[in-house]
């Protein structure tokens, strides 16, 4: 990871610019930004862990607490909401047996609502590990959950 971050650093006139890509690499490796992960990023960038955490905490895509192995996100901003995003979210809640913002007991899947994903004309947008499915209707949800649980 250290070497990978050094390579990214070289793309920028200033080291600090590499903090977002470096945090992303660390999150991919550890699943979430553990204290150790933040320390590793800090070492690679010659910053403090506190600085890295202060940046990470600003951005929604960084996890500062454990999350499931798979991330299911449902856009609930207005364009999707107007065409029924809340029913899609509730279908996921029912199918997974958790509320939005929670992780299944087996640690496999985290479900959360997402602000406008940028697929407004094809709502409701669902992102599975950041891969968009659009449009998703409540009746599509069981198959998506099955696929996610099967590792697809």
């Amino acid at each position: 990871m250290y070497d990978e971050i050094q390579e990214i650093k070289a793309q920028y006139p200033r080291t600090r610019s590499a903090v977002l890509p470096a945090l992303r690499i660390a999150q991919q490796r550890y699943g979430w930004l553990t204290p150790d992960a933040l320390r590793e990023v800090a070492d690679a960038l010659d910053e403090t862990p506190a600085f890295c955490q202060s940046v990470a905490s600003f951005y929604d895509m960084f996890h500062l607490a454990p999350v499931g192995r798979r991330l299911v996100e449902v856009c609930t901003n207005i364009s999707c909401a107007l065409v029924g995003a809340q029913q899609v979210l509730e279908a996921f809640e029912q199918e997974l047996g958790i509320r939005a913002g929670e992780t299944t007991d087996d640690g496999q899947v985290t479900l959360r609502a997402l602000e406008c994903a940028g697929g407004c004309g094809w709502g409701t947008v669902v992102a599975v590990d950041h891969r968009y499915r659009e449009p998703v209707r409540p009746e599509d949800v069981p198959a998506i959950v099955q696929e996610v649980r099967d590792g697809g």
């Binding site: 920028y12 590499a18 903090v19 951005y59 929604d60 895509m61």
Partner: peptide, 27 residues
């Protein structure tokens, strides 16, 4: 051309916040 990915913050579409973020700061 460097392709720099954000990390989920609407405010980074505001031009000076975008620059802060690109410099590695909170946006």
């Amino acid at each position: 051309i460097v392709l720099h990915r954000g990390a989920g913050a609407y405010i980074c579409g505001e031009e000076t916040a975008l620059l802060e973020s690109l410099e590695g700061e909170r946006g």
